[in-house]
Design a protein around this nucleic acid. Sequence first.
DNA 1: AATGAATGAGTGTTCATTCAT
DNA 2: AATGAATGAACACTCATTCAT
Lengths: 188, 188, 188, 188
Amino acid sequence: MARPKSEEKRLHLMLAAAEAVAERGVGAPTALIAKLAGVAEGTLFRYFPTKEALLNETYLYICELGWASANESFDLSRPLIERARHLWDMHVDWCLANPVWDRALSQLAVTEILTKETRAAEAAMFPDVGLMEQVSAGEVLAGHPTEYADALFLAVANATIEFARREPERVEAYKASGFAAFRRMFLD
Amino acid sequence: MARPKSEEKRLHLMLAAAEAVAERGVGAPTALIAKLAGVAEGTLFRYFPTKEALLNETYLYICELGWASANESFDLSRPLIERARHLWDMHVDWCLANPVWDRALSQLAVTEILTKETRAAEAAMFPDVGLMEQVSAGEVLAGHPTEYADALFLAVANATIEFARREPERVEAYKASGFAAFRRMFLD
Amino acid sequence: MARPKSEEKRLHLMLAAAEAVAERGVGAPTALIAKLAGVAEGTLFRYFPTKEALLNETYLYICELGWASANESFDLSRPLIERARHLWDMHVDWCLANPVWDRALSQLAVTEILTKETRAAEAAMFPDVGLMEQVSAGEVLAGHPTEYADALFLAVANATIEFARREPERVEAYKASGFAAFRRMFLD
Amino acid sequence: MARPKSEEKRLHLMLAAAEAVAERGVGAPTALIAKLAGVAEGTLFRYFPTKEALLNETYLYICELGWASANESFDLSRPLIERARHLWDMHVDWCLANPVWDRALSQLAVTEILTKETRAAEAAMFPDVGLMEQVSAGEVLAGHPTEYADALFLAVANATIEFARREPERVEAYKASGFAAFRRMFLD
DNA sequence: AATGAATGAGTGTTCATTCAT
DNA sequence: AATGAATGAACACTCATTCAT
């Protein structure tokens, strides 16, 4: 083979797409994405057939990055409440540490760009640490899918993150309060 | 006689904008909006200087519509918990009954189109029924702004609405569970 | 109405399209066509929804131009052979006098751009002067559609035109010979 | 050892080009041609300096294929009229049997791609079986180049082929009528 | 005040050709 | 010699906005 297609370029393109979407929304031009990735405009389309495909893959890639660290560091031998807090901390910290990626995900999540397949793949990615089963088996969420528990976790987390960002010096206070709120919902 | 600008047309344009954004995202063409409003393309720009201005005003207008019914029906003499539940029901019911408007708001909320002023005006619009003061004075949210309490309310509500929409026959179950979760966060 | 859409611009666009196609084939850029027509690029698409639509309409328009003069000057009281010769002269002369349009028609005719409707409309446009019915009723073409007679007429004419163009000083000789050949095919 | 360029690949490329042009017009991408030929995109340009060169050579190659069978089977000892009919049959049959190649030739013939040299080479390729000299020496075509006689032959043949293709069950009727028409032009 | 024709910068995507491997 | 990744100039088409009517 003349030259293998560079996995590095794929990654650069997805990271560039995330950055562009974070800054300019899903309307960010492919030309900008290519420029941010350091490749020619045409090159983008050799790695992704359409802009939509690029954005879908980017979404999943960034999701993976986000959950990767969380998943690595799990200690299933710890009590449930500690695991929950660990998950909470990992998620909130990652979002705060990576505002660009977090913003890209938010932007993509509300558009029609994401396919059913992408949404399914994302749902499957939520770390399964035995937390949500417990939650949705509890009295409050009895009878609802675990995805609803996931969604509530994320909803509370994201609202918390937004306010933590506004008052950076009070991040830990928000983190604690947000987790306390979540915990009281289900875990007491 | 010079005709005065028609307030009715303004309203039609904003409703048309909401519909267009719900269906096609913020990229919906102004030409489509004008068509849905039953006016000529150029007329839109006699009522709103730019598309962004139209979308900002539309956002606030739809928000107002959303909270209007809630505000109308408040009975401050009822106990706090009942008022909370009433607010919850009004919000969830309105979103479920008006999916187009709800979707338009979601779309607009994540874009860069909304100005600081718009966001501030929206925050001020959240019905003040004495609920959130109580909540944020409670032990969990002590020291945080009441807007954080608002945000948590909306976060839990919106996640609940999304799942209720997926399982229309279980709307009441979701509504009850969602409120129970919210209540446990702060009100017990 | 603000301003009526200008019929003149439509015509200019079609003439410009013919010119562009004659010079650069069906791949001629819409930007060039707009420039030749003296309008902005975007204007083209307010008059024709797509390039294909423009080219189809252009084809029929040029065809009409071509047959218009022939149709005007017919004298059905003359004998058949004179009518045939008149049609022949009109066609050959028009093609020679309008090489750009003739070339545009040739280019368009071989591509897949022309729709079934366009081809049908074109076929209906061939001047009906009672000639082809006679021809196809004759012994040589008995049982074939009159369109086959049309096609043979045009085939012989177009070959003749091509050679007449190469030797402009012998145009009349080619015209005479070509008609003689056509005549001998069917009319003796 | 340096591999010599493969004559087989040249041929494959030209056949692939013909196929691609037949299906997608002269705008057919070189990448598609290479794929149809079973070689890499870049390889095409090691055999032909440009796409235009490839198409010119392809045109001549397919023309050669077309006349090859006709030329092989000539019996100059037969009377003129039989040789004419034989040529006619060979041509019509080849075009009907090879619609892809025939279509490729039609497409290429009208474009600006074909150079003067290519057109000259093609003209020289028309089988010389003593027919056209006779034709152009006859009373109808006296004084015109034999190429004009060739052109009339092809014009009548190609119109005939087109209609024969539309009514496949009447191929022989069209072949006979077409030849009768041609014959009456010059040979009676 | 209302219209809608006109505009041209901008968009996603294609493709002939080059060149590192 | 063969490959196919990389390129960037084009391309068809869109759309927010202006302005003549």
